[in-house]
């Protein structure tokens, strides 16, 4: 029964025409970046590790961004199309419905991550970076991705319109991404410093550096990832909380 829901989510969000367009746009972006590594002089002088690290940052940022946009539409969209009531009336529990949607959402992210692999393969030639990219993408980053997916889905259940839930997810993503726009000096004090130390996104980038460049061990990576794990727990807690709050308001 839950398989039917997952199947529907996949058809609607992973293999629909809309998502194919998204994939197309994402590959265009990846291509632009990859080509710039081999053509723009400044970038072509980068060490290969740096090239792959920069590419990884973009892959992670873009894939999470589109994932949360899809995620914020999942419940709110059902609400707006007035299909939620029939879904809630099915023998599936709310938790099962949410789980099915989360699986669909993660699959969407997975497809985007798959799209990045040929690029990594080309950019990491002659080094061991490709394996590292796989480990980073599918093991180290998984808590981060699940966290953001759960968060957007949570917003989508609480807020009744797709617009507001997309906006909220988007803003939260930007807040966690603030440190990337700031100079090192700014990151060393005040608000930016706090964001930099707790932001799951910054921490993932730090982990990326420690793993790719500094070649640090598992223990250090775990410490780097601690805020990400906390973020994951909080996101899932929010999703569970939101899940219990799913009700139909009058007139819906």
């Amino acid at each position: 029964m839950i398989a039917a829901l997952i199947g529907k989510e996949i058809k609607e969000n992973v293999f629909s025409k809309k998502s194919l367009w998204i994939y197309f746009a994402v590959t265009l972006l990846f291509s632009g970046l990859a080509l710039s590594f081999v053509s723009v002089k400044e970038l072509s002088l980068l060490a290969q590790v740096e090239v792959n690290m920069t590419f990884m940052k973009v892959v992670l940022g873009i894939s999470i961004l589109v994932t949360i946009i899809i995620g914020s539409n999942m419940y709110a969209g059902e609400r707006e199309r007035e299909t939620l009531e029939s879904l809630l009336l099915s023998p599936l529990s709310k938790a099962q419905i949410t789980f099915g949607k989360l699986v669909g959402l993660l699959l969407f992210w997975f497809i985007i991550s798959l799209l990045s692999l040929p690029y990594f393969f080309a950019l990491s030639m002659g080094t061991d970076i490709f394996v590292k990219a796989l480990v980073f993408l599918y093991l180290i980053c998984f808590p981060l991705v699940i966290g953001f997916a759960a968060l957007s889905l949570g917003f989508s259940t609480i807020l009744s319109s797709t617009k507001s839930s997309t906006l909220l997810s988007f803003i939260l993503f930007l807040v966690t991404a603030i440190p990337m726009f700031l100079s090192t000096a700014m990151k060393k004090s005040g608000f930016a410093h706090i964001v930099d130390t707790v932001s799951p996104l910054s921490r993932s980038m730090l982990t990326l550096k420690d793993y790719f460049v500094n070649r640090l061990g598992f223990a250090v990576l775990m410490v780097d990832l601690l805020p990400v794990i906390i973020f994951l727990i909080l996101s899932i807690a929010l999703l569970l909380f939101a899940n219990n709050k799913i009700t139909l308001k009058g007139g819906e």
Partner: peptide, 26 residues
């Protein structure tokens, strides 16, 4: 010293092929 083992031709092939594959799929 430059040490990158990146093969620009290969990167170019991937970068051009990927969007085209998706466009064909569409």
């Amino acid at each position: 010293l430059g040490n990158t083992k990146i093969n620009p031709i290969f990167v170019q092939i991937v970068s051009i092929a990927m969007p085209i594959i998706l466009l064909l799929l569409l």
